[in-house]
Structures are given as C-alpha cells and as structure tokens.
Design a protein around this nucleic acid. Structure first.
Lengths: 266, 266
DNA sequence: CCAGGGTTGTTTACGCAGTAAACGCGCGGG
DNA sequence: CCCGCGCGTTTACTGCGTAAACAACCCTGG
C-alpha cells in the first residue's frame, strides 16, 4: 500500500496478505479443479483486479481452465459470489493464524464484541474489494444484517450477550446497533482504500489542468482539505466501538438495577 | 407499499411516492427526450424494477425510444448512474415540498444534523433500490463520504459546525462519525426493505418444505426469531442519532471549557 | 419557396458477458 | 479389453453496452 500511510503504523487489523499459492496470481494451476479452489481463486482475483473485472472467462483463465469448466462446481455467477462472501466471512472462525485470536472463547461480552469487531475489520482490510459484496449481497434471512452474515455468527452474538445478562430485546437491539456501526465504518474505510474501482480507474490526462477538484467556491472545504485527507480510520473505529460498548453497558446496568423489563434500546 | 406495515404508522420519513407523469410508469412519453427526462425515467425504473433490471435497452423502451437514443444525452451507462445518484441526492436541496423543511436554514447545529439525517433517510426510504448506488458509487473526492455525496453538502455541513464553535478537527471528526452512522443505518434499513433484488427474486417452489430456514441448531435464533423480525428502524435511527448528537455535544463543550486545542474525537 | 444542414432518433454491427448443450477424452472396474 | 462416466472443451445462443452509418425531421437563409 504505497498511499499516504504517514502515521497509521501498527494498525493491528492491517495484516500483510500472503496467500500460499504464488502471489503473482496469474499462473495456471495444472492440477484438477474443485469448488474450494475456484472460490479461493475468485477471492484472489477480486483482491487483485477488483470485483468488476471478475468474469467467468477470466476467472477460468486465471485458474488455467475454460470458463465452462467452472459450471461443474458452481451453479452460476451469482452463486459463485455468494460462495466468495461465505468463504471470506468464515475466515472469522478459523484460528489457524497463530497470532492471537479470533472469537468463540472470550472474557466477557465486551471482549467478545471487541474481538468480533476487529476480526471483521481485519477481513475488510484484507479484502477491500470483497467487502462491498459482503455488504450488499441479499442475506439468508431478512434479519441477518451484514457484515455479520452467517447464522452461526448471529447465534453466537445473541448467545454471548444473553448469557452476559442482556434480555432478548436488549441483545437484539445491540445486534442491530453493532451491525450498523460495523457496516458504516468499514464500508467507508474500504471505499477510501480505493476499492471496487481498482482496474478501470481513469489515469487522467493532464495533471496540471484542474488538479483535484475546484474548491474555490467552498471555503470550508478549501481550508480543511488537508485535514479531510488525513486517514484516522483506526482511531475512529476504536473510538466509535468503545462508545457503543459504553452505551450498551449503560443499558445493561440500567436494566439490571431497575429490575423491570424496560430493557430495549429504543 | 403493501408489505407488512403493521405498526410503522406515522414514520415521518416515510412519504408516499407520487411522481407527476403517470404512476403506471410503463407508458411511453410521446414528446422528445432530454437528459432530465432520462434521469427521471431511470429513477422511476429502478424504483419499479430494481437496479439490476436497468439496461440501456429497457430504459429506452420504458421511455418509448430506442436504446441508442439515450447516448445523445448521456455519455454511457456509468455516467447515467452517476446522474441518477446526483439527481436523487439533490432532492435534499429543493424545498418545493411544502411539508416542513429540508435544510439550509436551521436553528443550531443539532437541528441541522437532525434535519439532514431525516432528509437523507427520507430519500433512502423513497428510493430503496437507488440507495445502494448512492453508497457504492466512487465519490468525487476521496474524502467525500456517502451518503453525503455532494461537495455543496459537505461544505454546508462543515460550515454549520464550525460556525457553531466546532474546531476544524472536531467538525471533520463529526462529519466522519455522522456519515458512518447514516450509511450503516440506512443501508441496512433499505436492504431489509428487500431492495436491489426486486425483480429477480426467487418465488420458491414449495412453501411447505423448509419454511424459513432451519433454525433447530441455533437455539438463540429460534427463541428470538419473532423479535428479530420486528422492524424498529425508525426508533433505532432516532435513538442512534440522538446518541451521536449527545456525543458531539460533549466533545464540543469539553473543548470549549478546557479552552485548549485538544478537540478531536480521536 | 426551396435547398441544405443540423438535430434527433433508428439501424446495423461488433465484442464480450453468462450459460445451455453437445462433444471429446482419459481412466478405472466388469 | 472396453465401456461408461467424470471432467474439461467446443460450439452456439441471447442479451448487454456502445461505435458508426443512416434516415427523418425542422428550421433557416437565399
């Protein structure tokens, strides 16, 4: 990432992407196909060239195979995209990464929500071009809210909170607030990384003509433009997450002390 | 909207869509084309049939014209979509709607942020299938954050807050937090309305086989499923908005009393 | 009044997308 | 041995975005 990463050093959710099978990515794989290899190839392809560049023919080519071969393992393009989303989201549950953690064992619900949030953010930053897909694909059930896309995940979320003393209503309100927060923050963060455009961006002709856009009629923008261009995503994420946790904690304690059933956020 | 609007009565942001030129929508317009009619037609078309169904040929047909005719007024499909987004967002600034308000004159920054939030929410609810486009189209400048998409809008936002005593940093932090909040909440609310799929949704074969999804292995989901399906979007939006305003107010007062320059949210 | 040119929409055509259907081809068990 | 079948390819069709040539119209200058 050669962009202006002036002071965002040691963002804990920003991990280098390695991938095992050859970073060059374009080389064909001589061995046989299977659904998992296709999905893996699709993720790599989107990471490398952006979502818009993914076509069945090109994905086939990048796997050393003709487009129609894919259809033996994947019903069609839409289902392939669903598979990509599922695969990327499931990353949350593998803890092969010896680093520190992901989820499932935790110390209290605050710790759980922290781990979950950073886990999702890590995924978003590792696959910026995939994340809009995670956000926009129609969910399995109407109450499954991206980016918390799997039933298993939502189950674990609600289970953790209710075990911690949240009422059902409060846990659900927390779920809604939490997913909104994650989606908003991460989608914007990922967009700023230059997601989705990727390959078909315009190189622009003359860099001297109207460098940037003309801000002369927007004094506040003009004055604050350097500040606006600073990237404080990590700190803002942390801040908003903590704020949300405080808010939930307040709700939880109020409900426990007042002892009644006035326990939903709304 | 004949969906289950059981108890969402008097959501102030939910307004009936009327449109002037014939709600049936499919009838051809015998008079000549122009860019504005095309954009209007595109918005109507997306509202009626979903984003995925919009093709140049079909949009042409819905306007009583061949696809290539559109290219005289619109450089291409991408630009057409940009035009759609721009047109829908600009709705904020017209106050022809005698109802009560939109923006630009306001009583204090809290009132401004309230009006702005409800204005955007009103737009999102009026055009659920267009909103994902508002969220995902690459912005004019990298620091323009959807759904606050126009320079004019951001200028007005920053101007209002700094006039109210926010430092530049605090105003920008507020801008970031506010846009994240709006995007997350509204995108999820609009998704729940069944946006984007619209036409190509699967009618499903047997409603008896596995009605809903099988939740037997997810006890928390199973127990809370009725609660999860309740729509409290309006109340949650209000609640989160008020919480954000409180937070901003706290930041503002702290900065004013401490009198120093420690004024950014992060 | 009438030619001619600009404006507006249509026709035709090309390349690329997703994908259905028929086709080889190699391999492992009767 | 061979034959069926799993696996990948070939071919072909439809619909997309759009470039380019074309036709119909109106408006204006001589």
């Amino acid at each position: 990432m050669p962009t202006a990463t002036s002071d965002d050093d040691r963002d804990p959710d920003l991990v280098a992407v390695h991938e095992g099978t050859g970073v060059a990515g374009e080389l064909t794989r001589p061995v046989g196909l299977d659904r998992d290899r296709i999905l893996r190839g699709a993720v790599e392809f989107i990471d490398a060239h952006g979502l818009a560049a993914l076509t069945m023919r090109r994905l086939g080519a990048s796997l050393g195979v003709e487009a129609m071969a894919l259809y033996r393992y994947v019903p069609g393009r839409e289902d392939l995209l669903d598979g990509v989303v599922e695969r990327v989201v499931e990353t949350l549950f593998v803890k092969d990464d010896g680093d520190d953690l992901y989820i499932e064992e935790h110390n209290g619900w605050q710790d759980y929500l922290m781990r979950l949030g950073h886990g999702i953010r890590r995924i978003a930053l590792a696959h910026p071009s995939v994340f809009p897909l995670i956000a926009s694909r129609p969910p399995a059930a109407p109450w499954v809210r991206p980016p918390l896309r799997s039933l298993r995940l939502v189950e674990s979320f609600l289970g953790t909170l209710t075990e911690a003393g949240f009422s059902d209503q409060a846990a659900i309100a927390a779920y809604r607030a939490y997913s909104s927060f994650l989606l908003g923050h991460l989608l914007l963060e990922v967009t700023q990384l230059g997601a989705q455009v990727s390959l078909l961006d315009q190189p622009e002709g003359d860099p001297e003509a109207q460098r940037k856009t003309d801000l002369t009629q927007y004094p506040n923008l003009q004055r604050t433009e350097p500040l606006l261009s600073l990237d404080k995503s990590a700190a803002e994420f942390e801040d908003a997450l903590e704020n949300l946790l405080d808010r939930l904690e307040r709700v939880l304690h109020e409900a426990q002390t007042s002892d009644g059933e006035v326990d939903d956020l709304a």
